[in-house]
Simulated scan of single mutants.
Amino acid sequence: MDPTLDYEQIGYAVADRVATVTLDRPEARNGYTVRMSDELAHALERADADPDVRVVVLTGAGRDFCVGADLSAGGLDLDGADPAAWDEPAGRCSMRIFAMNKPVIAAMRGAAVGAGSTIVLPADYRLASTDSRFGFVFSRRGLYPEGASTWFLPRLVGLGRALDWMVSGRVFDAEEALGAGLVHSLHEPDRVLDRAHELARELIANTAPVSVAVIRQLLYRMAPLDSPFPVRRLDSRLIAGAFTSPDAVEGILAFLQHRAPHWRGSVPADLPDGLPWR
């Protein structure tokens, strides 16, 4: 996507070091389109590259987060594409969230079904309203799961629950999502976005941006390995280098002096060298 192009189906705003990315088709209950997927991927890339952005909040305009693919909005951009090389739309967003160096907080209300459930799985936090509904409904449409959700979902809720939700394709409520660990907390519908921004401010005040960037990627990329030994080697190298980092010095001094830290590190500029995923 051309970086000078105005967004048509999402909103993008930065304030107080938080980038708020909003699915903005409330008249269609934020039905997911190819255009929306590309705009989301572009906005996430933009936020990740901006040193003034520390946290991203992903939300939806209106009463619903996203009701899934808008089947009335045209095809899937497959014309002339090689199916072996084509990237389906939900994955264009979910995989960009996976690759983020900055935390992503999803703030959802109302329906979060289909793409509305899959694109938020790689987020660091998923906050939902008490009236939220979720569903991986692909089996009920003769389709297949999207957005690498068959990789993400079992890691969040366990294989048994993932099998139930995906094989049945049933829609389930916010309490079931909370009990299974799909969402972190529930809030009244008019409080979800406020709480997401409060959480963003807590992360900005208390956590070092470079540490957060490395930690979220360590968890995603190293946890699936079949041995802890390569993880320990990387840990040792990172920790050995950390004590020459201004943020490590500041974090320890702030703790000893009982004051708030003042982080100097910037993402992506100050990420350590030698990270295997870079």
Rank of each mutant, 00 (worst) to 15 (best):
114 G>M: 07
115 A>M: 08
115 A>D: 11
116 G>C: 06
117 S>Q: 02
117 S>D: 07
119 I>Y: 03
120 V>G: 00
121 L>K: 03
121 L>I: 12
121 L>A: 06
122 P>W: 05
122 P>N: 06
123 A>I: 06
123 A>M: 10
123 A>W: 00
124 D>T: 10
124 D>V: 07
125 Y>S: 09
125 Y>W: 15
126 R>W: 06
127 L>K: 04
130 T>G: 05
130 T>Y: 12
130 T>V: 07
134 F>H: 01
134 F>Y: 10
134 F>K: 02
135 G>M: 01
136 F>L: 07
136 F>W: 08
137 V>C: 11
138 F>L: 04
139 S>H: 02
139 S>G: 10
141 R>M: 14
142 G>Y: 09
142 G>V: 07
142 G>Q: 14
143 L>Y: 07
145 P>F: 04
145 P>N: 09
145 P>A: 13
147 G>R: 01
148 A>V: 03
148 A>E: 11
149 S>R: 00
149 S>I: 01
150 T>C: 08
152 F>H: 04
153 L>Y: 00
155 R>A: 10
155 R>Y: 06
156 L>V: 07
158 G>H: 09
158 G>L: 07
158 G>Y: 12
159 L>D: 06
160 G>V: 08
161 R>T: 13
161 R>W: 12
161 R>G: 03
162 A>Y: 00
166 M>Y: 00
167 V>D: 15
168 S>R: 14
168 S>G: 14
169 G>D: 09
169 G>M: 05
170 R>M: 01
170 R>L: 12
170 R>V: 07
171 V>H: 04
171 V>W: 02
172 F>Y: 13
174 A>H: 00
174 A>D: 01
174 A>M: 03
175 E>V: 11
176 E>K: 03
176 E>L: 14
177 A>M: 04
177 A>T: 09
177 A>L: 04
177 A>W: 03
178 L>P: 05
178 L>D: 06
179 G>S: 12
180 A>G: 14
180 A>Q: 13
181 G>N: 09
182 L>C: 06
183 V>Q: 02
185 S>P: 04
186 L>V: 09
187 H>C: 08
187 H>Y: 13
188 E>L: 11
189 P>S: 12
189 P>K: 03
192 V>G: 02
193 L>V: 00
194 D>L: 12
194 D>M: 13
194 D>Y: 13
194 D>N: 02
196 A>R: 01
196 A>K: 01
198 E>T: 14
199 L>S: 05
199 L>C: 08
200 A>L: 07
200 A>G: 10
201 R>I: 05
201 R>C: 10
202 E>R: 11
203 L>D: 01
203 L>P: 00
204 I>N: 10
204 I>L: 13
204 I>W: 03
204 I>K: 06
205 A>E: 15
206 N>K: 15
208 A>L: 05
208 A>N: 08
208 A>F: 06
209 P>Y: 08
210 V>G: 03
211 S>D: 14
211 S>Y: 12
212 V>R: 06
212 V>K: 01
213 A>S: 15
213 A>T: 10
213 A>M: 12
214 V>Y: 07
215 I>P: 00
216 R>G: 08
218 L>D: 04
219 L>R: 14
219 L>V: 13
220 Y>N: 04
220 Y>E: 09
220 Y>D: 05
221 R>D: 05
221 R>A: 11
222 M>D: 05
223 A>L: 09
223 A>F: 10
226 D>N: 12
226 D>H: 13
227 S>Q: 08
227 S>K: 09
227 S>L: 11
228 P>E: 08
228 P>Q: 09
228 P>K: 03
